[in-house]
Simulated assay, not measured.
Amino acid sequence: MRVEIWTDIACPWCYVGKARFDKALAAFPHREQVEVVHRSFELDPGRAKGDTTEVIAMLMKKYGMSEEQARDGERRLGENAAAEGLEYRTEGRDHGSTFDLHRLLHLARERGRQDALIEAFYRANFAEERSVFGDDDRLVELAAAAGLDPAEARAVLADPERYADRVRADEQEAAQLGATGVPFFVLDRAYGVSGAQPTEVFARALTQAWCDRAPLDVVGDGGEVCGPDGCAVPGAGAS
């Protein structure tokens, strides 16, 4: 069975959602027969490679948030990440283009190191101080740590056309499947799971997809996602 996951490294709910899905997969009786493929989805596809900004400033400008709203949202996201055993820096993170990161993830898939690289990217972006945006040396360092040949990774970064068509194809396919935000999980082209659902929802979807074959049916509608209008903030608007 194949599970395809559309994500973006800049998406905090993708970071949390992967941890929840991984817990469900670890407990799934047929986990050794499940292939996981990470697909590309850029939340900010028009951003230039060198255009980086601090996350709080980006949230304020792009989504019209006050500084207090942006900081509160990051704190809440940090709490959700911590609940899954993840580190999350709520201050001082950068935001930038993820196009090169997606291109490297396609290289990593060919080399059998895709999951290791996306884990390295998530950890670097959400838990570590040094930015992953606009710094080829940083990306090569992370690629090497994930088991890729650093020279090959650098060659990909030096050629903006390498794997660019695959990134765009993934994004077009996401649109065709009706994915307007990420994370978006597609299980054996039979079931879809939208958002960073609880682990038990992923467990149920794995079981359903294993047992059944049916047209794509979105499971757990309403989970937290990141989309063109921003990232859902847990508890926002509660009294």
Score class of each variant (00 low, 15 high):
Val37Gly: 02
Val37Leu: 14
Val37Tyr: 04
His38Glu: 14
His38Pro: 05
His38Ser: 12
Arg39Thr: 06
Arg39Ala: 09
Arg39Phe: 09
Arg39Met: 08
Arg39Cys: 10
Ser40Pro: 02
Ser40Asn: 03
Ser40Leu: 03
Ser40Phe: 04
Ser40Tyr: 04
Ser40Gln: 02
Phe41Ser: 10
Phe41Pro: 08
Phe41Thr: 07
Glu42Thr: 01
Glu42Arg: 03
Leu43Pro: 12
Leu43Arg: 14
Asp44Pro: 00
Asp44Ser: 07
Asp44Leu: 04
Pro45Arg: 03
Gly46Arg: 07
Gly46Met: 09
Gly46His: 09
Gly46Gln: 12
Gly46Phe: 06
Gly46Tyr: 06
Arg47Val: 13
Ala48Asp: 14
Ala48Thr: 10
Lys49Ser: 12
Lys49Leu: 12
Gly50Val: 05
Gly50Cys: 04
Gly50Thr: 07
Gly50Phe: 03
Asp51Gly: 11
Thr52His: 00
Thr52Pro: 00
Thr52Ala: 07
Thr53Arg: 05
Thr53His: 01
Thr53Val: 11
Thr53Tyr: 00
Glu54Asp: 15
Glu54Ile: 09
Val55His: 02
Val55Thr: 13
Val55Met: 10
Val55Gln: 08
Val55Asp: 01
Ile56His: 01
Ile56Glu: 03
Ala57Gly: 09
Ala57Ile: 07
Met58Thr: 06
Leu59Phe: 05
Leu59Tyr: 07
Leu59Thr: 01
Leu59Ile: 06
Leu59Arg: 05
Leu59His: 03
Lys61Met: 01
Lys61Ser: 05
Lys61Asp: 03
Lys62Asn: 08
Lys62Tyr: 02
Tyr63Cys: 12
Tyr63Val: 13
Gly64Pro: 11
Gly64Cys: 12
Gly64Val: 13
Ser66Pro: 03
Ser66His: 08
Ser66Thr: 15
Ser66Tyr: 06
Glu67Arg: 13
Glu67Trp: 07
Glu67Met: 05
Glu67Gln: 14
Glu67Phe: 04
Glu67Lys: 11
Glu68Trp: 05
Glu68Asn: 08
Gln69Pro: 06
Gln69Met: 12
Ala70Phe: 02
